[in-house]
């Protein structure tokens, strides 16, 4: 492994897990969000070589058509995307958010998802999807 290879490029070009996307390559859009040991990070700003012993979860690890993760299903239900390119990052952030000390309001969710840019502007539907999952998990 070339030490220069970021975790993002390793996932996409070496392991061919292409669900994680590159949108800016500088930690400015959130499309590359994955979980490392259960915490969300920007995979474009860390070298793959730094994570040999870490557990890395990508969008492919959440669910697939036919057995979607509740957050993935909520994004479909609430139309929480348009082009879908940034969607993996939004969902990885949203799933991580469920375990973070995020307040209950829509404004809290908007702040916690602030690091995931959606140029299509599907933001309200994304927030609706996240809130639906949170409400359901409270029941």
């Amino acid at each position: 492994m070339d030490p220069r290879t970021t975790l993002l490029d390793c996932l996409r070009e070496t392991i061919h897990l292409t669900g994680t996307k590159k949108g800016c390559d500088h930690g400015q859009c959130g499309a590359c969000t994955v979980h490392i040991n259960g915490r969300r990070v920007n995979s474009c700003l860390t070298f793959a070589a730094m994570h040999q012993a870490d557990e890395i979860t990508t969008i492919e690890g959440l669910g697939e058509p036919g057995r979607l993760h509740p957050m993935q299903a909520a994004f479909v239900e609430h139309d929480g995307y348009q082009c879908g390119y940034y969607t993996s990052g939004q969902i990885m952030s949203a799933v991580a958010l469920l375990k973070e000390p995020c307040g209950p309001s829509d404004m809290d969710v908007k702040e916690y998802l602030g690091g995931n840019i959606c140029r299509c502007g599907a933001y309200p539907n994304i927030v609706a999807a996240v809130q639906a999952v949170r409400r359901h998990s409270l029941l």
């Binding site: 292409t18 669900g19 969008i59 479909v76």
Partner: peptide, 20 residues
């Protein structure tokens, strides 16, 4: 709901740079 929703939310929709 979009018919391509499930592949989009699961990272299976293939965009250009996903091809190798």
């Amino acid at each position: 709901s979009r018919i391509d929703g499930p592949v989009k939310v699961s990272g299976q929709a293939r965009y250009t740079s996903d091809y190798s």
